[in-house]
Computed example of a mutant assay.
Amino acid sequence: MPTRDRDRAQRAEPAGDSPDPGRTPTIHDVAARCGVAASTVSRAFSRPERVNPATRQRILSIAAQMGYHPNPIARALPSGRTRTLGLLVPDITNPFFLDLIRGAERAAATAGYTLVLADTEETSQQETTVVDRLTGAVDGFVLASSRLSDARLREVYAKTRLVVVNRRVRPVPGVLIDSATGTRQAAEHLASLGHRRIAYLAGPRASWSDARRWRTLQAVARQRDLSVVRIGPLAPTVEAGVAAADAVVLNDVTAVVTFNDLLAIGVLRRLRARGVDVPGQVSVVGCDDIFGADFCHPPLTTLTAPIESAGRSAVDLLLSLFDGDEPGAPPRQDVVLPTRLTIRDSTAVAPTTGPDRSAQDRAGPVSAAH
């Protein structure tokens, strides 16, 4: 601290009038009251080791009396940091992403960062628009279940710090929920119950984790001599599950594995409306174990995923990139989080026949892609 500022602060009485009632005090108001330069007030908050301890204590005390709080954006200008992070999710109404957001928000707050949240509406176009708008305005991004192409993700990573969730694109660091292992557990669980013909209700076409689960199901089918049929791609919603349940009946399967719990819940609703017993005639397995999965009728067998932990891990991984790494630096180790199969009442021993085909005349339009 310059000697003249220290001397002025030590001998000066509070100077100047208080800000007008209702007006937020500024750094200049605090400086005038303390008898120091505005730059000294700034250092007292941002770089306290460069200010005389007595002077700093006086500045902080008077600032508190005046109700002054530093502007985080203004403090970030010299360093180029905004202390904000961008979190992009495909669908903010999906309970899966609500848990992920909660975990990310807690990790960001603990580290002193603010989270900027954007819903990209399951489209790569909207995701691209949001990334372009926020690049430079945030210190880095977490892209959850990104719908961008591999090439586009590498372009973003070359310009800014980036972590992806449920995606593997070298050299972009990521957090992976290992649903492939859980999918294998689900398929082997159904096989152990005697199911030989299984439907998979696929998620969005651009979903990386969806393709991984389908490959896993096919591999288990070859090993266990099962028949699997793919229905979709489908929007990961309850409504899409309701519509897809008709295709399940037409394919005469005894078990269904779905991309997520919302699709599974839709299937349960439609099969119940059609008079198809679950699990007596068709077993249903979901994925994610979202809030409410155990409240279904019947309670849903599903893959339990550490969703909130994925949000925390993604922010922690992103913040670790600030420790000297430049955008586009060599990849760090991906974080892989395990899943496990939670068995409830929606799965049971396979029936000797498929769903009640006599109920088909009550069914609505069938929409299926294989």
Rank of each mutant, 00 (worst) to 15 (best):
A76H: 11
A76C: 12
L77Y: 10
L77V: 14
P78M: 05
P78I: 04
S79I: 08
S79Y: 11
G80Y: 13
R81T: 12
R81A: 13
R81Y: 12
T82Y: 03
T82R: 09
T82L: 03
T82D: 03
R83E: 10
R83K: 13
R83C: 09
R83W: 13
R83V: 08
L85V: 15
L85Y: 01
L85N: 00
G86T: 02
G86P: 00
G86N: 02
L87C: 02
L88V: 14
L88G: 04
L88K: 07
P90L: 07
P90G: 07
P90T: 09
P90V: 07
P90Y: 07
D91R: 05
I92N: 02
I92C: 03
I92H: 02
I92S: 08
I92Q: 04
T93F: 08
T93N: 10
T93P: 00
T93R: 13
T93M: 11
N94T: 00
N94G: 00
N94I: 00
P95R: 06
P95W: 07
P95K: 09
F96C: 06
F96G: 02
F96D: 02
F97K: 04
F97Q: 03
F97V: 07
F97L: 07
F97R: 04
F97Y: 12
F97P: 03
L98Y: 05
D99V: 00
D99T: 02
D99C: 00
D99R: 08
L100T: 11
L100S: 03
L100W: 06
L100P: 03
L100F: 12
I101R: 02
I101V: 13
I101F: 08
R102P: 00
R102D: 08
R102K: 10
G103T: 07
G103I: 06
A104W: 05
A104Q: 08
A104Y: 04
A104H: 07
A104V: 07
A104P: 04
E105W: 01
E105S: 13
R106C: 06
R106T: 09
R106W: 04
R106L: 10
R106S: 07
A107I: 03
A107D: 02
A107L: 04
A108R: 10
A109H: 14
A109Q: 14
T110Q: 15
A111V: 11
A111N: 11
G112R: 13
G112L: 10
Y113C: 11
T114H: 14
T114Q: 15
L115W: 04
V116H: 15
V116N: 15
V116P: 05
V116T: 15
L117M: 09
A118L: 06
A118C: 14
D119T: 05
D119V: 03
D119C: 06
D119A: 04
T120D: 11
T120W: 08
T120V: 14
E121D: 14
E121T: 10
E121N: 12
E121Q: 14
E121W: 03
E121S: 11
E122P: 06
E122N: 15
E122A: 09
E122I: 07
E122L: 12
E122G: 05
E122H: 12
